[in-house]
Structure formats: structure tokens, C-alpha cells
């Protein structure tokens, strides 16, 4: 039944997520929708709260505020939720337990979620030879490990796959292979994929829809083509200017930590924005449409819309 579901149907919906760690606001008021058969990119620099969003969606951390709907309803039982929402971590060197074989890593989720597949079939899906099953993680390369991590996530037969910077720790030469694998799996299994990255160029290639995050908030969103080709928000524009060479970042590498007490009333980006206006300091910018299904939270577009 899952296989015949129509494409682009909403799989996971987050409404007004807020996560506060002691005095740090990691995520403030994030809403987004993941659809089946679609890849949604979440782009932002280090510390902008991307991983926190992923962990909130994976229910690895409890949101301070907000709710998460899976197939339109709140799921009470965590295990049922985990069967449908799986996650791939950023660092394949850390996400596999060094003391267990690859087979153990794949057998466990199959057992937990009572799936009929075998570890061999999972390995085939991620294009790894079955004789790797008896190996330990340290005997595999980074790319191979990440494929194992993907296979483990697929074992539960999920609807939603949360991929937190799945290729950022890998060699440039093998990144494309892993991304293509994810694309292929998305098509075949009609997965709703959240693709987290700080590389906005890869979002264009890989994602149908792109959201840009800054300081714990989503500041721009729309289909990937228009967000990356006609960025509206000044922050997105900066990101793209620095994109060809991620080393030569125009903006400082780390977003400033947002202290709860110090949250400014106005735009989070004001201090670094080249186009800052006086009201940016005092009033939070509302979302404005800047194209078909493309919006930005910035005062520059408020008159344009009005």
C-alpha cells in the first residue's frame, strides 16, 4: 500500500518547532513539510541549527515547543515513529559502533521492525558486496561506511529519510556516488528525504525544494531552482557568492550563538546584512512571496508585495 501512494503526498510536517538548550536557542519557530518522493534541502552554515532540526524530526531530542505530524497525525509510540522516520548521520566514522560487525548493524533494525528482508538484500540496495557483512566498521572506507549507514536506515522500510550532511565527511571524489544512490533510492522507494548541507550548490543539483536556515530560523524557502538561481534573502545571496569556494566564505564561518536573553526583536541577520535598514533592528521581518512558491523573510520584499 505504501508503494502505490501518490507522489508528493505529505509525509512529515513540523509546525513551529523550538528547541532551547539552557541559554542557547538552537532552533526557533521552524515549520517545514517533507513530501514523498521529494528531496527537501536544508542549507545553512555551521551552528545554524540544522542538526538540531534533524534530531527533532528523528525524535532524538524533545522539542521545547511545536509539534510533528507524521501522515497527518501525532504518533504517540516512539517505536512506531522510528519505523517510518529514519536518520543518516553526518560522520560515518562515529555512527557505526566499532565493536559490532556490519551484519549486526543491519540485522538489528530488521529484527526490531520485523522486516522480512535479509542483510544481503540491504547491501545490494546500497551497492556493497555481501561479503562486507562480516567486516568491522574500521575495515571499511568512509564512503562504504556511509552506505552501510544508509542501508541501516533503509532496513526499517521508512517513509522519511533524514540525511544530516551525509557526504560532508567524505572525499569529494565519492560524494556524487553516495548522493546518486540516495536519489535512486528516493525514486524507487518513494522516500521523503530531508537533505541537510552547508553546500548550497549541491542543493540545486540534488533537492527539489530548498530551505535556508540562519540563526535557528528558516529565512528563505522555495523550489531549489529559484532559491539557488534567484536568491532573495541577503543571507542566501552571501551563501551563494561564497559557494564556489567554500573555504573563502564571505560570511564568518560560525553563526553567532543566539542567547535566549539576547534574541533581538528585529531580524537575526541585521548585524551582518549588507542591506540592513532601520526597521530591521526593531521588527522581525514577515515572510513575503517573491515568486511562485518562493518566499523570504526580509523587509526588502515587504513593499514589493504591498
Amino acid at each position: 500500500m505504501e508503494e502505490v501512494a501518490p507522489a508528493f503526498e505529505t509525509a512529515l510536517e513540523a509546525k513551529g518547532l523550538v528547541k532551547t538548550y539552557k541559554r542557547v536557542r538552537a532552533v526557533q519557530d521552524v515549520s517545514l513539510v517533507l513530501r514523498r518522493g521529494r528531496v527537501t534541502a536544508l542549507v545553512g552554515e555551521s551552528g545554524s541549527g540544522k542538526s538540531t532540526v534533524a534530531k527533532l524530526l528523528a525524535r532524538l531530542v524533545e522539542p521545547t515547543e511545536g509539534e510533528i505530524l507524521l501522515d497527518g497525525r501525532k504518533v504517540r509510540r516512539v517505536r512506531e515513529y522510528r519505523r517510518k522516520v529514519q536518520m543518516v548521520f553526518q560522520d560515518p566514522f562515529a555512527s557505526l559502533n566499532p565493536v559490532h560487525t556490519i551484519r549486526y548493524h543491519l540485522t538489528r533494525p530488521l529484527k526490531i521492525h520485523k522486516r522480512p528482508e535479509t542483510p544481503e538484500e540491504l547491501m545490494e540496495r546500497v551497492q556493497l558486496p555481501a561479503d562486507f557483512l562480516s567486516r568491522y566498521p574500521y575495515e571499511l572506507s568512509g564512503g562504504q561506511r556511509q552506505r552501510v549507514a544508509i542501508a541501516r536506515a533503509l532496513a526499517a522500510h521508512p517513509e522519511v529519510l533524514l540525511a544530516d550532511e551525509p557526504v560532508s565527511m567524505l572525499d569529494v571524489s565519492i560524494r556524487l556516488g553516495v548522493l546518486n544512490l540516495l536519489l535512486d533510492l528516493k525514486e524507487r522507494l518513494k522516500l521523503a528525504v530531508l537533505y541537510i548541507t552547508h553546500d548550497i550548490a549541491s542543493a540545486r543539483y540534488f533537492a527539489d525544494e530548498t530551505f535556508v536556515m540562519y540563526g535557528g530560523q528558516i529565512v528563505e524557502g522555495g523550489d531549489s531552482e529559484s532559491v539557488t538561481q534567484q536568491p532573495a534573502h541577503p543571507y542566501t545571496q552571501l551563501l551563494i557568492e561564497s559557494a564556489p569556494d567554500p573555504e573563502r566564505s564571505v560570511v564568518a564561518l560560525d553563526a553567532p550563538v543566539e542567547e535566549v536573553a539576547a534574541v533581538s526583536a528585529g531580524c537575526q541577520f541585521a548585524a551582518r546584512c549588507p542591506k540592513v535598514q532601520s526597521r530591521c533592528w526593531t521588527d522581525a521581518p514577515p515572510r513575503s512571496d517573491v515568486g511562485a512558491g518562493h518566499w523570504a523573510a526580509c523587509w526588502l520584499y515587504v513593499e514589493a508585495a504591498a
Binding site: F89, Q90, A149
Partner: peptide
């Protein structure tokens, strides 16, 4: 991460 990952797979 491997502890988080085990949690995420439903252990």
C-alpha cells in the same frame, strides 16, 4: 553518534 544511531533505529 553510534548511540544516537542505535536509538534512532529503535533500540
Amino acid at each position: 553518534d553510534f548511540v544516537e544511531a542505535a536509538r534512532a533505529s529503535g533500540e
